[in-house]
Design a protein around this nucleic acid. Structure first.
Lengths: 392, 392
DNA sequence: GGTGATCCTGCAAAGGTTTGCAATGAAGTA
DNA sequence: TACTTCATTGCAAACCTTTGCAGGATCACC
């Protein structure tokens, strides 16, 4: 007691009387179907009756029951968005982009967080299944086969994971990891660690593969550390391990881990970038705010959100579930187009990477580390990618 | 072109055949009501038939349609959570706490972001209304009267806002602002600015009131700056204004603004805390990661989320909407208990506050600024508050 | 005045489920 | 044997909408 305090507690009559289409019909002296049409097909009803019905509805505070409507039309005009960890700043831009795109198409987005828990993911898909017209699965942690199975229950679009037979939006983290490793090698690093993320992450596998190839090609050695929790504390916890590994540069699974790692190294007295260079992935807002500012692989999160919504809606429009047929065979062969889109990433060089032990003394090959360069790897091309690349 | 790339685009038969309770009934040779009971009241059906039905259901991949179920039971087992800005790190802990609490009660949480837009808020309440059993309104930006009106459509619990007649969960930001101002005055500051947030924010008004009182009481002058966007860039944008105002200390509406302000001041060559002290509110994770580490008022976000869910569910249980009466008077007087709970806040002193122009030279009265004190204002008491304080 | 066309409205089925009531049969009791 | 009780199942109404179809009215036109 003491830190929580009840100010007031009253008990009154909540006027939670659910008013239905029938009430409006009775009040305005028409059949319920006329009321229904007043809302869903106004041009079919006489202007006079229309205003009368609308007045009554307004009066009674009537709102169409979207659940009942969905039951018969098969369209909820909602989209579900399942996110591995809402606390990861990587996701909000994606969520917001998806929301804004959805809103333009007259859809609402409901977000659910799974805490990186595959079981929660499955459960949430079931919970959302009949309340939304489709679900965006962002960085799922469950198995591909489970995803495929769930996709029979509700239209799915997968983000940050490749699942054959399903529409996917991918970010080219392989390319990103390669750029990062090449950048580090260019700076004179030969011992590089990859600070891995969750085992079941597609991104994780891609990075590992690409980083390995790039390291070999550049004559560097890649040490893989992990799996780790893709969070600040996950990164911090790996600091000791990184120090022991003796590498002079680290590519982290994401910015959060990179930032945690820098914190952890700092606590151990290891300075970044003087002693160890660190590269993150995602380019979250935060990476511009910490000191040193983080060198990172920028991922087009906004474009991913928009594209995913587009792909879902396109897929959806073709198959109006509410096929009110003879009752026998309910639309057996639904045509569904599944495209897989890859979005580009960009290396953003800031202050957390610097010359390594093998740097050429005279004039360093790659980006000299001014105090605040802030400049993207490819200056002219912005990161944003349009989301209209869905093939038919 | 160039940054987006279609890998594959195939077109196959999606097996989106919706299987209903009727299919299962036919397959297992029982009536649909028996199938229904198998799922919603298993003890009422013979074990033998039960296993048979379950086998058929499994076989066909049947899942009860939750929307249809909700239509008749009046219970969706979902909770809606409407958030002003999901990108604000203040919210994720609240969301996660609410989710975990809800999950224990066998509920799912759907989150929606409004982008600080009152119109979007209203729209989302309508969209969620019949798909959830209640809505948590977090830091709403719409008017009190609109909130009251919406509460007739769906049970509401309001967080970070006081609305008479509705259950509310509040954080004592007044107390927090007072502590912050007293801390600053103790450090020798006499000119203090309050960097305000959104105009329609209850928190904003409370802070302003409490900070004003505390400043007067301590012989300091409070300058109110704002309204501003409650974001990093909103804070950064106010830096120039702060400098011109000539104050030596600033209390910001939230941590994000505080951090932005520090950035902005830094860009202007004003050093924190040497020239200007800055205090934030919320104690988001980020506030421990920036340099200097932020002095801030910690708010019990987790407890708020848990408490809000508890209050909603308690209110909800008492009024089972699906009152299947004679059809005449559908539960006219629903008893609804509305409590308002206030949760305590705590000042956490870190590195962004330091001695002001009027500091006593000899031995500074308040907390000497060691490089990394990390110690809360009231050492023994943790910030977490239990959420079980809802009065009957 | 008859013939269509047009506009508006009502009827009733449908969507997938839950649930009170009644019917069935079996088991238990007197 | 007759009567009760209980467990199990089926029947049908209900939840709130949408929507194809048909009926009625109005109007224009020949």
């Amino acid at each position: 007691m003491g830190h929580t305090h009840v100010i007031a507690a009253t008990s009154d009559e909540g006027s939670a009387v659910p008013v239905t289409i029938r009430d409006v019909a009775r009040a305005s002296g028409v059949h319920i179907s006329t009321v229904s049409r007043t809302f869903s097909a106004p041009h079919l009803v006489n202007p006079d009756t229309r205003v009368r019905v609308l007045a009554c509805a307004e009066d009674l505070g009537y709102r169409p029951n979207r659940a009942a409507r969905a039951l018969i039309t098969g369209r909820t005009h909602n989209i579900g968005l399942i996110i591995a960890d809402i606390a990861n700043p990587f996701f909000p831009p994606l969520i917001k982009a998806a929301e804004s795109q959805a809103r333009h198409r007259d859809y609402h987005v409901f977000v659910a967080d799974t805490n990186e828990d595959p079981t929660a993911e499955e459960e949430l898909v079931h919970a959302l299944a009949k309340q939304v017209d489709g679900v965006l699965l962002c960085s799922p942690r469950m198995s591909n086969s489970l995803i495929e199975q769930l996709s029979r229950e509700v239209p799915l679009v997968v983000v940050n994971r490749q699942v054959t037979g399903l529409p996917c939006v991918l970010m080219d983290v392989g390319q990103g990891a390669r750029s990062a490793v090449e950048h580090l090698i260019g700076l004179g690093h030969r011992g590089i660690a990859l600070l891995g993320g969750p085992r079941s992450s597609w991104t994780n596998r891609e990075m590992r593969r690409a980083a390995g190839t790039a390291a070999r090609a550049g004559g560097a050695e890649l040490t893989v550390l992990g799996p780790n929790a893709p969070t600040v504390s996950g990164g911090a916890a790996a600091a000791e391990q990184v120090r022991r590994s003796g590498v002079s540069a680290v590519l982290a699974y994401n910015d959060l881990m990179a930032i945690g790692l820098i914190e952890g190294l700092d606590a151990l007295g290891v300075r970044v970038p003087q002693e160890v260079s660190v590269v993150g992935v995602d380019d979250i807002t935060l990476s511009r705010l910490t000191r040193p500012k983080l060198t990172t692989v920028a991922t087009p999160t906004g474009a991913a959100g928009r594209t995913a919504v587009d792909m879902l809606l396109q897929q959806d429009i073709e198959s109006p579930r509410g096929a009110r047929g003879t009752g026998a065979g309910t639309a057996l062969g639904v045509r569904r187009t599944t495209a897989q889109v890859m979005l580009q990433t960009d290396l953003v060089i800031r202050d957390s990477t610097g010359p390594g032990p093998h740097a050429r003394p005279a004039r360093p090959l790659a980006a000299p580390q001014g105090p605040d360069p802030h400049r993207p790897a490819v200056p002219g091309i912005p990161t944003t990618a349009t989301g209209d690349a869905v093939a038919s």
